[in-house]
Simulated scan of single mutants.
Amino acid sequence: MRQVLTLIANPAAPALDDATAKAARAALTELGAETAPADWLAPSLACDIGFDGLNEDQAQAAVARALAGRPVDIVAQAVEGRRKSVLVADMESTIIQQEMLDELGDLIGARERIATITARAMNGEIGFKGALRERVALLAGLDAGVLTQMIGRVTYMPGAATLIATLRRHGVYCALVSGGFKTFTAHVRETLGFDEDQANDLILADGKLAGTVVEPILDKDAKHQALIRITAARRVPVAASITVGDGANDLPMLMAAGIGVAYHAKPSVAAQARARIDHGDLTALLYIQGYRASEITVA
């Protein structure tokens, strides 16, 4: 079979069974596709259904209708080139659970105000650069030491450590590219084992936050360019990459990659991304690439 549809459940609440897989296969067959029996990548968590003779978007939509209401993610793609050699990941609300500017806002009693701006920027309602400058300006005068203190608030998305450990074990180059700040990306890179990180730098003056950011600001275009740079440096085509993110500033790199995954994303992002994970954790990116349970390094 030249194409494959993958069904993925959340490991915290496995909800994938033979009946669900058969319903998905039947939906493909009804549209005239030639299909193969379910191939289980991980019991109760993920399975592949090979198919031919159907547009991948059509296949994905048909199965989504057939499985409506079930907590299962659905990704259809070509089999050839399915496994990628480069991962480029957003950090905040993707690899980690926090938006670190929102956390910093706690220190000045402006968390709600900053979080509102963050949400609007991530949903594409306002420009990222302006939103970043506006939020950072509110932090002017804070002692620079708060950045190190805030590292203690970082918690990781379920599956993040396993995702990176598995990809690194299989020789995949993993890059963390964030519109956030270098203090936090450096910590996450070192903790999880990313190969590199790229982010914005806050300007300090006399040991305090100046309320400004080093220009140019790393935004959606810079993330896209990072993807191009990284794949070129690795001497692989962009098609050999997988990207993951949740916000509007991730869209260009999600759309450009071999497969871009909107992970528990903002509505405007999920609607446009080629693949979306609404139910599973970050190990879903492994199943999308066809990794089996026996190949996954649990971390």
Rank of each mutant, 00 (worst) to 15 (best):
I259D: 03
R133L: 14
R25Q: 15
M255E: 15
V75K: 01
V177Y: 05
D281F: 00
A275E: 03
G179V: 00
H187L: 03
G152K: 10
E196D: 13
L282P: 04
Q98P: 00
S241D: 07
L254K: 03
M157C: 09
G179R: 00
A144W: 02
K220H: 15
L31Q: 14
A299R: 14
D195C: 03
M150V: 13
A210C: 06
D73T: 07
R135S: 11
A199Y: 08
N200M: 07
K220P: 00
A140H: 11
M122H: 09
L139F: 10
L138N: 04
E92Q: 08
E134I: 05
G130R: 10
F194E: 10
A68E: 15
L176A: 05
D90G: 10
A161G: 09
T35E: 06
A26S: 14
A175V: 04
L192K: 01
D195I: 04
A265T: 01
L204E: 13
L254D: 12
E92Y: 02
A256M: 11
G280I: 00
A24G: 14
I126G: 03
I259T: 13
R292M: 14
M91V: 05
K182T: 14
L54T: 11
L176E: 07
V79H: 08
N55M: 10
T243L: 13
R113P: 00
V86C: 07
I117R: 06
H170I: 05
Y291C: 13
E215T: 06
Y263H: 06
V146D: 02
D197V: 02
P11Q: 05
S178D: 05
M91F: 04
L142W: 09
T35K: 09
R234A: 15
A257E: 07
A275M: 10
D106C: 08
R133I: 14
L251E: 11
A233C: 06
Y291R: 07
V261Y: 05
Y173C: 00
G159Q: 07
G50Y: 11
L218A: 04
R229A: 14
T116R: 13
I217Q: 09
L209F: 13
L7V: 04
A68G: 06
I230K: 09
R276G: 12
G260V: 08
D52C: 05
A205R: 15
G211S: 09
L176Q: 05
M1C: 06
A78P: 01
L285Q: 02
L16T: 02
L218M: 10
I8E: 03
R189L: 03
A233D: 15
A186Y: 00
E295N: 13
L251R: 08
A46I: 04
A119C: 02
E103V: 15
P216K: 06
